[in-house]
């Protein structure tokens, strides 16, 4: 079963994440978690972006924080609430929140 992991903060529990992440994991970046998609530290993108292949970022929370979609790297998919519902109902049927 595919697991959805919602990351709601820029700083997250990387060790816990490493223990639960797999090829079947989908990461949803919401609230301050969206900073992982658009902010670089020492010129490098967030290490989170290399840990799993499926990463989604919530458009509403990006916009709220002054970011546009072109700031989002190509390996991250920009989604809205309706898209998140579809992905939960069709793919990531069990989801947790970090």
């Amino acid at each position: 079963m595919k697991l959805g992991v919602f990351i709601s903060d820029f700083k997250y529990d990387a060790e816990l994440f490493d223990r639960i992440a797999s090829d079947e994991t989908g990461v949803f970046l919401v609230h301050d978690g969206v900073y992982n998609a658009v902010v670089k530290e020492n010129g490098k993108p967030s290490p989170l972006l290399e840990k799993v292949s499926k990463i989604f970022v919530l458009k509403d929370d990006l916009k709220l924080r002054g970011f546009t979609e072109d700031a989002v790297p190509s390996n991250v998919e920009v989604v809205d609430y309706g898209d998140i519902v579809d992905k939960l109902m069709e793919e990531y049927k069990r989801a947790i929140w970090l």
Partner: peptide
């Protein structure tokens, strides 16, 4: 916390899709 605001928006989107 902002979490309840997220939950209510997600619930609204799901209801609008007929779930």
């Amino acid at each position: 916390s902002k979490n309840i605001a997220f939950v209510l928006r997600l619930a609204k989107a799901a209801l609008e899709k007929g779930h």
